[in-house]
Each structure stands twice: as structure tokens, then as C-alpha cells.
Design a protein around this nucleic acid. Structure first.
Lengths: 229, 229
DNA sequence: AGTTTAAAGGTAAAAATAACCTTTATAGAA
DNA sequence: TTCTATAAAGGTTATTTTTACCTTTAAACT
């Protein structure tokens, strides 16, 4: 049956991952200093070639795990790049994914071992190939998407405070939000579970910890009304 | 330099196009009855293999032109499908695009010659491979996207009436809209140019024709305020 | 001239948003 | 022990937006 396709060209396919994290009120990106040619010493996203027994999503997961130790994280394909000369080494079609992860859950040893570093989103170094374009496209998408889907919680620890959540949205959306109105809005959705424990790191009074309630969110979502910041 | 990549597997890459049109108040899809194996006689999206000298976007445009005669239309990549057995004939990675086109501008001869037909979106036949999944994903995306970007105008003739535009949005969003409120909203954006010509096909009074004003839209867009239905 | 119909314009209640102000809990200083 | 400073959290009000629904209008056809 494959004879119908004989004669058609074949291509190398790679997967590149734009990995976002949040730390100290800043949106960060996990980048790696290439330890091997081509362009040894330059910064790049983490990537790898699609293997015969896997699909793109699995390859992306494999790469993410290799660099962070994490499994089961928010990981989505967003575009496949195919410019003829995007990789000067060969014609490589690259499917790009973005991941939103909780930095504190990553395997620091692994990150260090692979020469990867968390870089502030507005202090990016030069990146190889079309990786900067990938980052920009991913940013644009999550900036839009975070307003309609509960992405924010993917970047925070299991337990977080409302002010922390607000800081995260301010970092993603690049603008100040009114704290009273933000609190009202997020609490009115009834998708957070209040814990009776406080975080006193940032204030004397302390801020209550909350947890995202996936079950309540699913109900909200299927009932038609939707999450919106 | 390509020696760094030697030993990595290569794949067939195809492009599939989900082509949307709008006619008689119905959202439609251009589908084709396969004239050659595999699965001869079955319905499918229009597709083709990525050629050596082109990138995915160009391949999609080539395929679109082949079946409709159109160039310069709204065409966007939305996902790359890579399930191991998605095509029983061989391992084929397929990048899927959706197109929004004005049916009346298509080359009817060409469509007919290639055995393609416009099918009502809620009367879809069985589709080969994972093409139904592609259609569903594309639908989901344009349903969301049409609320924030002026996609609608891509599906209507250059000149259209407000009631026509409303019918289109009702078809995409699958719900009735209040005609007075719809009119107010769309006109308040000031992105339409009123012509002094009426369409009297659907009412005795007749409805004024309007044109989408891309320049005004760009101003609206860059000035921060945004299109929203 | 009267009837019918969709287009187009208008209005008022309700809901959501935005701006801003007040109170509260607590650590650390006085 | 009391005072002070600060961020958290709650409250108030004006403004804007949305929603539902009603009225008028233009033109074809009786």
C-alpha cells in the first residue's frame, strides 16, 4: 500500500520546546547553552529529533523530561516551522511546543547537568536558528490564552496566594492590575479552594494560601460560563 | 555540517486543508471524493505531500489553488498530526491548515473537475484517516477566533449586509444573536464602510451593503482596543 | 391606499468593570 | 506593652457594557 507514496520526499523532523516558568515575580524561560556543534556555545531551546516509534507530543514530553525531570505537565504544540533554511545544517522541519511548569518541582541537578538555565523573559540572549521567533509566537499565544483558560495555575506551586497569582498575571500580561478587582474576579469564579494557612513571606499580615480546584473549573467550563481575566 | 544529523529518521510530510465557505446561511466545507487509492471513493480533505522546494504554508497554498483557483486567501496552519497509524499506507506526518474563502470567487470548473463538493458543516459524511478530527479541531479554533479577530469577512463577498454578517456569525457560533445588538456592536467598531446601495433579495425595504475596511481595522487593532463579538 | 416584512433605530433595566477608599492582621520598632 | 508600617482583604460608587425588548421606517405587493 505504501507504494502509492513512493517517490515522495522525506524529511528530518525535530521538536523544540519553549519552557515557561515563574519565579520572583518574573516570567522565565528555560534555555540551554549548546554543548555540541552546530553553533556550540550558543543559546537555544531544548529540542530533539522525532524518533520512529513516537509521535510529536511524545517527543516533546521526552525532551521536557530529559531537561527538567518532569512528567504530566501542561504541554501544547503551537506551530510547525518549515522554512527551507531555518537550520543551516540540513532541511529540518520543526514542530514547536510550549510548556508551563512549576520551577520548584524541576530536577535542578538535571537542569544543571544539561547546561540549562532559567532566563528572564525580557533579558533573552541571542538564540540560534528561528528559536527567537518560536519564543515570540509562544508568548503571544499564552498572553492571549491565559485570559480565557486557567493556565496561570500551571506556573505556580500547588499552594499559592491571591497576590502571587496577581503578580503572575501582571508578568504575563505586562500590565498592573487592581488588586481588589483582581481578587473579586478570581474569587467570583469559585474555582479556588481556600486553605487555612498563610504565607507570611511578603507581608506581616500574611496572605491565605489557595489551591486551584480542577473539578470546580470543569463544572464552570461545561456549564457554559467561562474563565476570563 | 549535515553529518551531525546523520542517522536520524526521515518522514513523509503531507499538508491537509480544511476549507470553509459560507452559502445560504450555512457554514460549508469543501470535501473531495478520492479518485485514487488508498480508500478510493471515500471523502477526504484536500491534501498533498510537502515538496523539496517549498515550506508548509506554500504547500497549503498550492493545494488550495489546485482545488479552488484562489490565491491570497485566509490560510492558517493549526496543528500537525503525527499518530503512528493515522495513515494506514505509511507513516505520514500531516500539517493541517484551515482556509476561509469566498465561495463565489472559486473556480467552479476546477472544483468539479477534481470531484470536490461543498458540504454543509452539520451534514458531514465519513472522512478518511483522522480528517474528521482535523475538521473538529479547525471548527473549534475558528469558533473561538472569530470572536476576537475579523475572520467573518473572509467568508462573505466584498459587499455584504449587516443581516448577512449576522447570519454568518450565527452559523459559526451556533446560536441566535439579537439583531439590534449585533448591529450596534459591529457598527460601533467603525471598521465597516457603508455603501449607498441596497440588497433587496431578502426584504422589501432592502439592507444597505457594507465593506470591511482593513485600514480602519488595523488602526483599531494597534490602538489597543479590540474587535470582539 | 393599505398591508406586510425585514431593516434599522431607540430605550431602559441589569450586569460587569474600573477606580478608589477603608479596615484588618501582624511583625517589628519604640 | 503600645505604636507604626505595610500588605491583605473587604467595601463603595460611578461608569460602561450588555441584554432584552419595543418602535419606527422603507419598499414591494396587494
Amino acid at each position: 500500500m505504501s507504494s502509492f507514496y513512493s517517490g515522495e520526499p522525506k524529511y528530518l523532523i525535530s521538536v523544540d520546546c519553549v519552557i515557561f516558568g515563574f519565579d520572583k515575580d518574573k516570567l522565565k524561560l528555560l534555555l540551554v547553552k549548546r554543548m555540541r556543534p552546530p553553533q556550540e556555545g550558543d543559546w537555544s531551546l531544548m529540542g530533539g529529533f522525532l524518533q520512529k516509534d513516537e509521535q510529536l507530543e511524545q517527543a516533546a514530553q521526552r525532551i521536557l523530561t530529559k531537561w527538567t525531570g518532569l512528567e504530566q505537565v501542561f504541554l501544547e504544540q503551537f506551530y510547525t516551522f518549515s522554512e527551507l533554511d531555518r537550520d543551516p545544517g540540513a532541511r529540518v522541519i520543526s514542530s514547536a511546543f510550549y510548556a508551563l511548569i512549576k520551577i520548584e518541582e524541576t530536577d535542578k541537578e538535571l537542569t544543571k547537568k544539561h547546561n540549562a538555565e532559567w532566563i528572564d523573559i525580557d533579558k533573552l540572549p541571542e538564540l540560534i536558528f528561528d528559536h527567537l521567533r518560536m519564543v515570540q509566537m509562544a508568548l503571544e499565544i499564552i498572553r492571549h490564552k491565559c485570559r480565557f483558560e486557567p493556565l496561570g495555575f500551571e506556573l505556580l506551586p500547588e499552594k499559592f496566594t491571591i497576590p502571587q497569582l496577581q503578580k503572575l498575571y501582571e508578568a504575563i500580561l505586562q500590565r498592573k492590575l487592581d488588586n481588589a478587582n483582581f481578587r473579586k474576579k478570581i474569587l467570583s469564579m469559585k474555582i479556588l479552594k481556600k486553605l487555612d494557612e498563610k504565607d507570611k513571606e511578603f507581608s506581616k499580615r500574611g496572605a491565605f494560601y489557595y489551591q486551584f480546584d480542577q473539578v470546580k473549573y470543569n463544572k464552570l467550563n461545561t456549564s457554559g460560563s467561562l474563565f476570563e481575566i
